[in-house]
Computed example of a mutant assay.
Amino acid sequence: MTDPTQDPHFLQDPYPAYAALRSTCPVQPVPAGSGGRPSYLVTGYAEAREALGDARLSKDTAVFFAGKGSRRRLHPAVAHTMLASDPPRHTRLRKLVTKAFTTGAVTQLRPFIARVADELLDRWPGGGPFDFMAGLAVPLPVIVICELLGVPRADRSDVRRWSAQLFAAGEPDVIDTASHAVADYMTHLIATKRRDPGSSLLDRLVAARDGDGHLREEELVSLAVLLLVAGHETTTNALGNALLALLQHPTELDRLRKDPDGIPAALDELLRFDSAVSTATFRFTTETVTLGGTDIPAGVPVLVALGAANRDPARFPAPDRLDLNRGAAAHLAFGHGIHRCLGAPLARAEMEIALRTVLARFPGIRLAVPAERLDWRRTRLVRGLTSLPVLA
């Protein structure tokens, strides 16, 4: 299989390729490019959901890569995050940050999110072209997560640049360098907060580390890096994908324009229709696992294609049609099981407020260029636009 990130047709619309793979077999081997053992790709919904919840599929990358002699220079704080761990370590780390992302905690952030969205859109008087990605979809989640973690305003553009570089498919040196930059930055920020404590989430994590010793220093840095990067990447891509889907389906867009209170319910279908995460983060089998009738040997990676699963007609009839009346709450855009996206309530709030604000202030919003001319990020993990030029 060739690298899909080098195929402009796949980047523009991966779903026909996913459908072809799924129709052949919902779980199938993907040949290794360097003569190693193949990975297995999961494209069916039922199989993806099962894989995401199967404890025999480990996420502990430290165990998988031990002794394999990788030439990579990825910083340990990026390579071994909470996402790359299994219980009980994963359970312990997740418990430390869960309260910050509950529905109640996010409700308290909503006025701040709305204020930031308005301030960002104030820079677009309407009429002329506006890049929705650069103007709103990127800065809004960055500002919110940085505010939550206590990252100074002056540092936020660096944070966004390093985060984007971490997803640079086919550029391992760029990824490795960015991993050290963001980890070194968070190490410095943690030291600053020890000298001058505040009330941010990161301050509370520092206090937990220094208080009861249940959080090791390297785990503190890793958790800070994960929250910083994951706290905005998914939302940025989901926002761009959602608005593009609506602009390409004017009937559905008009429905939300007339009834903005329907936006929260519409989010599930928008998330399903064009998932911001194409492929779930790394997993590997700890023993032979039978999935979708396919026997997967022990010790091989399993790639769960969330975007493909969310377009499986066996679960979502007519999956290539955007239907805001569809009951799509079972989508896998945020994953499933113990690793389901911790920040899902925050992402949903940011999406709802952003879309509500845009449609209220610019009811005539439309694409400024044909959809086929839009540029997509060249990365295997996430699906998102580099820019989204619009007019009002």
Rank of each mutant, 00 (worst) to 15 (best):
M1D: 06
Q12M: 09
Q12R: 15
P16L: 03
A19G: 03
A19E: 01
L21P: 02
T24K: 08
Q28W: 06
P29A: 08
V30S: 01
P31S: 09
L41G: 04
L41D: 00
T43N: 07
A48S: 14
R56K: 10
K59V: 09
T61K: 14
V63M: 04
F65Y: 15
A66E: 13
R71C: 09
R73T: 12
L83A: 13
D86I: 07
P87N: 10
P87L: 08
L96M: 15
A100P: 08
T102H: 08
G104K: 15
V106M: 03
L109W: 05
W124R: 12
P125I: 12
G128A: 15
D131A: 12
F132W: 13
F132I: 12
A134I: 12
I143H: 00
E147T: 15
E147Q: 14
L149R: 00
A154H: 08
V159C: 00
R160H: 11
S163R: 01
L166M: 06
L166K: 01
F167E: 00
D173L: 12
V174N: 04
V174E: 02
A183P: 05
Y185K: 04
M186R: 06
A191T: 10
D196H: 14
L202D: 01
R204C: 01
R204S: 01
G211W: 12
L226G: 00
E233C: 02
T235D: 04
N237R: 05
N241M: 10
L243P: 00
A245Q: 10
A245P: 06
T251W: 07
L253A: 10
P260G: 03
G262W: 01
P264N: 11
A265C: 05
E269V: 04
D274Y: 07
V277M: 09
V277I: 15
A280Y: 03
R283P: 04
T285E: 06
T288F: 06
G292P: 01
G293M: 00
T294F: 08
I296Y: 04
P297Y: 10
V300L: 04
V302H: 02
L303A: 13
V304G: 00
L306T: 12
R311S: 10
D312R: 11
P313T: 13
R315G: 09
P317Y: 14
P319H: 02
R321E: 13
R321N: 08
N325D: 15
A349R: 02
F362S: 09
R373C: 11
V382Q: 11
S387Q: 15
